[in-house]
Amino acid sequence: MLDKNGIAKRIAREVKDGMYVNLGIGIPTLVANYIPDGINVVLQSENGILGMGPFPFEGEEDADLINAGKQTVTLLKGSSIFDSAMSFGMIRAQKVNLTILGAMEVSEQGDIANWKIPGKMVKGMGGAMDLVASARNIIVAMQHVNKAGESKLLPKCELPLTGIKCVKKIVTELAVLDILPQGGFRLLETAPGVSVEQVKNATAGKLIVEGTIPEMVI
């Protein structure tokens, strides 16, 4: 079974040289720490950065330079700054190649819910609806089951949707799965020490297991 850093590490292997990538808040942010040397990617932050760098050294924080999670960050050489309209313009125009974000629920059709729990959590969707509606390649990083032990991979999302038919791949503490065009979670890899049976038990939606499932390499 993987911890948060393990999930991030596995997702980092999906990041290819030359990609422009938008990382959501939480586990996706950790992905930046595991992008292998020699792979050149540009991180996009939807508040208006391409070429986002690591956190600043203590004492060098700049209140005018934050990421979409409102954290102080730095800029790498070759970075650029732009306004919010252009930022979502490049997202809608599919210039950003890969979006990695968290989710509360994903359905076997690739629908995603991650912004609202009615009557409980009302924070808003931020840029998530724009990202999932436009990005061609969307990977979800999340726990396979919620705190109550219920599967987050469902036949149909129960929470208010963020987007429909958009998620391409899911990486959880148990497995890597993709979503088939006709619907269904196809098991691609299991996490070290996790059996196919365990993944089956933790997946409420339709799980497709074809042949022998390899163990993740991380």
Partner: peptide, 20 residues
């Protein structure tokens, strides 16, 4: 918001930017 004192319309960030 939860008590109904404040009316809230939550909209996608890119929609907000582009409507401006």
């Amino acid at each position: 918001m939860l008590s109904g004192e404040l009316e809230v319309e939550l909209i996608p960030q890119g929609t907000l930017a582009t409507r401006c």
